[in-house]
């Protein structure tokens, strides 16, 4: 609890001390954390893997962007973002989730490929060029124009995500879910409606991603299919795995750690004397190696590993 309050206070105070570029990193890390907390729940608690989590991020972003571009109040667009993303997840998940883990992995990956291709070819979504001129988020007459305001919006969004996720983990279904990840047969035998919980977590994780996407749309003011590559979905998997699956703190720590790491690598790779391909090569190598190394040698992720050390 003390750690939690300290983290909340520090992250609340932090934006005041950050410059423009650092605020941008703060916002991106917070958005990534919102998505990763959901994915971490899905992977750790429901034992499922989604390789298309960025598509829910994209759906949320486009929902908020399209609605507000066409004159809907931005705040309604933001509220609609998680709802539409969740609805998509519910439709796909209802059919596919009854199968084993890898079916969902490929269904979500396929979904993202289809989504990207449809977005790129649809004039109503701005096509390959993207959706421009998304207004700033405004509530009543108050418009969020400064980066620091978006930093606090992201803080609030992540807080909402964490509270909802915390309640899910603590609920009776949540405890059933944990059993589900370890042994589906045992969970089913003890009367846990396996399919329904899995679908619920999948839908909720999509809603988290959708909300993050909505904020992203207003923050950036521009959306294109290129902002949501398959690699982004894989990045979320890396964040979730590195942080520690199934723990809320793991999702946040994983996302923040990876965003900071990638930032540092980018600085390094774009420093003078580095070849032009250095940024992509470095980030691919790091993502790939992190996944392999963590799964093989730190399978529970860094947060549970650190906690384990504290106890002993």
């Amino acid at each position: 609890m003390k750690v939690l309050i300290a983290a909340a206070v520090v992250t609340l105070a932090l934006p005041v001390f950050l410059d423009g570029k650092q605020l941008g990193i703060y916002v991106l890390a917070g958005l990534a954390a919102m998505v990763t907390v959901g994915l971490s729940l899905l992977m750790g608690q429901a034992g499922q893997i989604s390789l298309g989590q960025a598509s829910f991020y994209a759906i949320g972003a486009y929902t908020a962007g399209l609605l507000s571009v066409h004159g809907t109040a931005p705040v309604l667009g933001l509220l609609a973002a998680p709802v539409v993303a969740a609805a998509f997840a519910a439709v796909v998940g209802a059919g596919v989730l009854r199968l084993r883990g890898h079916y969902l992995a490929f269904a979500t990956l396929a979904m993202q490929l289809i989504l990207l291709s449809v977005l790129a070819q649809s004039t109503w979504a701005g096509g390959a060029i993207g959706l421009q001129g998304i207004p700033r988020l405004s509530v009543g007459g108050f418009e969020l124009a400064e980066d620091i305001q978006y930093a606090y919006l992201v803080w609030a969004g992540l807080a909402v995500v964490l509270v909802v996720a915390h309640n899910l983990v603590r609920s009776r279904p949540g405890r059933g879910l944990r059993a589900l990840a370890t042994s589906e047969v045992a969970a089913a035998a003890s009367g846990v409606p396996v399919g329904r919980y899995r679908l619920a977590v999948f839908t909720l994780s999509a809603a988290f991603a959708g909300l993050a996407g909505g904020i992203y749309a207003f923050y950036l003011g521009y959306l294109g299919p290129g902002s949501f590559p398959v690699l982004l979905s894989i990045e979320y998997v890396v964040m979730a795995v590195v942080g520690g699956l199934g723990t809320l703190a793991g999702g946040v720590v994983g996302a923040v750690a990876i965003v900071l790491l990638v930032q540092a690598l980018n600085e390094l790779a774009t420093s003078p004397g580095m070849p032009s391909y250095a940024p992509s090569v470095l980030s691919y190598a790091v993502y790939g190696l992190l996944l392999v190394v963590v799964v093989l040698w730190l399978p529970r992720g860094i947060v549970p590993a650190l906690r384990g050390k504290e106890r002993t």
Binding site: G47, G101, V237, Y284, A285, Y287, G288, V292, V295, P299
Partner: peptide, 22 residues
């Protein structure tokens, strides 16, 4: 590792392959 984690490991290896290929 076990088959379920192996999907993630092979995912990691295929991303790592990007680095080598580029």
């Amino acid at each position: 590792t076990d088959p379920r984690s192996a999907l993630i490991v092979t995912l990691g290896l295929s991303v790592f392959a990007y680095a080598v290929e580029v």
